[in-house]
Design a protein around this nucleic acid. Structure first.
Length: 489
RNA sequence: CGGGCGGUAGCUUAGCUCGGCAAAGCGCCUGGUUUGGGACCAGGAGACCGCGAGUUCGAAUCUCGCCCGCCCGACCA
């Protein structure tokens, strides 16, 4: 049999723009050809197809388990928010105002409403307003709420999963009796998010506080996770906000403390969205299409039966039927592709869809009580005995998950730099992307100047682990923070 | 939201200047031969030519308005 190289194999890929030719087009091609999502005909509104939604479901299941474990409860709050409520927190409405969609008419006659209703861009305001009913005493705290829903933000520019006018997410909103407890809550959730990003999506992230300019409207501080995509752009993969008493003040959320004094709550909010599905595409995909981390893969193992005639098929079917129950029992998400196509079509199809492991199974294999296993990353063919196959596949999937993370981690390492002056930063981003660490004075003017001169690069995270040293990369004053810079989605 | 480009079958496009029977490849359906890396033969279905007005004997083609998409900016999870 002729050995084919990976390059030759990639020639088989039709329909997808090469990543190196045009990354944006590549991304769109992959998302659409892998049947993850499409545009709907209404500007900026997407339809998420089962293969994309299943990945989101796997993420939601993982995160929902985490927050339930730590005492959070799911609620459902209204979609529509009265104008009067939305505008109460000044910084918040100033931040979200430009992208709020309004319902102003209703009924067959399209009668004007007395008060416009905002379609939620996020729910701090309505939850703040409603939650006060359920909080009287410190004994009612903490109140740990979450909701799974979609929100609408009137974006001017859209990209599937990354920026659509409607997107699906969870928004957690918690209320506490002390500042420290709320601060700890925001940190706790950030840790969960890190686990989702790194352990589930296999995307290594830098985490830390946002600069003032990048902080959520109305928050005291915002914690963030930033991943690196294969085009060198950063992507925010989750944020967790500490509000102090800002929202409690605006919405009068107070409680009686142990000394019977009235006190305002301390609150947080935090969210991850369907954007993470886009992150997974851009962090792991290649010119053949998707590569899906096993832990979130809708299909972890695809089995391609190979046969010539009805007898051959019966033989292969009986063989496969002998051990697939073991896979099911082991919780391995698998599918046997019985479609009436040739094997080569199926190989290409499932590679485009990024299924981690494929088993080619024909009469030869049945006779030898083995299968031919091919993984999506190396495309090496390996014969595997069916005896103990469930455990073997479990191990392979775990190894695949790790390999994906390691590869992404290595990629980030190769694309992370330490620089010290604005000139260097400007020169750097003219040539390439990635993360650049610099010392920063903490002045917003320096941040703005860097953004203006280095082609839109922004401060992604403040590193609170390492002590800053040296002078600000822009103004030369002593640095207060060590910060990561990147161009971001 | 500003500037540029585009929208013809499920997909990719030709036709548009110069108005005159709506085409091709892929995909889809049926039958047959095939099947260990994207097969082949034969037949077939499939198009309010983005939507709406206008000009004209006649519009995919010309004009205007709107919708949707792509690229570049400003804004952003």
């Amino acid at each position: 049999m002729k050995e084919t190289t990976i390059e030759e194999q990639q020639d088989f890929v039709k329909d997808i723009t090469k990543m190196s030719d045009d990354f944006d087009r590549w991304y769109t091609d992959v998302v659409r050809k892998a049947e993850m999502a499409d545009w709907s005909g209404v500007r900026g509104m997407m339809v998420v197809r089962p293969y994309g939604w299943a990945m989101w479901e796997n993420i939601t299941r993982a995160f929902d388990d985490m927050i339930k474990e730590s005492g959070h409860e799911n609620w459902a709050f209204p979609l529509l928010i009265p104008q009067e409520l939305l505008v109460k927190e000044a910084a918040h409405i100033e931040g979200f105002g430009p992208e709020v969609a309004w319902v102003t008419k209703a009924g067959a006659a399209m009668e004007e409403l007395e008060e416009p209703l905002a379609v939620r861009p996020t729910s701090e305001t309505i939850i703040g307003h409603l939650i006060r009913r359920y909080i009287q005493s410190h004994r009612d705290l903490p109140k740990l709420t979450n909701q799974w829903n979609s929100v609408v933000r009137w974006e001017m520019r859209s990209r599937l999963f990354l920026r659509s006018r409607e997107f699906w997410w969870q928004e957690g909103h918690t209320f506490h009796a002390s500042a420290q407890e709320a601060i700890d809550e925001a940190e706790l959730i950030l840790g969960y998010y890190r686990s989702i990003a790194e352990d589930w999506l296999a995307v290594p992230v830098f985490s830390g506080k946002k600069s003032r300019a990048e902080t959520f409207p109305g928050a005291e501080h915002t914690l963030t996770l930033e991943g690196l995509m294969r085009d060198g752009m950063a992507l925010q993969m989750g944020t967790s906000h500490y509000f102090g008493q800002n929202f409690a003040r605006a919405y009068d959320i107070s409680f009686s403390n142990k000394d019977n004094e009235k006190e305002l709550c301390y609150s947080t909010s935090w969210g991850i969205s369907t954007r993470l599905v886009g992150a997974l595409v851009m962090a792991h995909g290649d010119d053949s299409g998707l590569v899906v981390p096993p832990r979130v893969a809708p299909i972890q193992v695809v089995i391609v039966p190979i046969y010539r005639d009805a007898d051959g098929r019966a033989k292969v079917e009986a063989f496969i039927g002998g051990w697939t129950p073991e896979l099911k029992a082991a919780g391995i998400r698998h599918r046997v592709d019985w479609r009436d196509e040739r094997p080569g079509d199926k190989y290409a199809h499932w590679e485009l869809k990024g299924v981690p492991l494929r088993l080619n199974v024909g009469a030869r294999d049945a006779d030898a009580a083995q299968v031919e296993m091919v993984d999506r990353l190396s495309r090496q063919r390996v014969s595997v005995p069916v005896s103990g196959i469930a455990q073997r596949l479990r191990d392979e999937l775990d190894a695949f998950q790790k390999k994906l993370f390691d590869r992404a981690h290595e990629f980030r390492k190769e694309n992370t730099y330490e620089l010290s002056t604005l000139d260097e930063v400007v020169a750097h981003f003219k040539e390439r992307g990635g993360f650049v660490w610099v010392p920063w004075s903490g002045d917003a003017e320096c941040e703005e100047r860097a953004k203006a001169e280095a082609g839109g690069v922004t401060i992604r995270t403040l590193d609170d682990e390492e002590k800053p040293s040296g002078e600000c990369f822009v103004c030369g004053k002593p640095a207060k923070h060590r910060v990561s810079l990147a161009k971001a989605y």
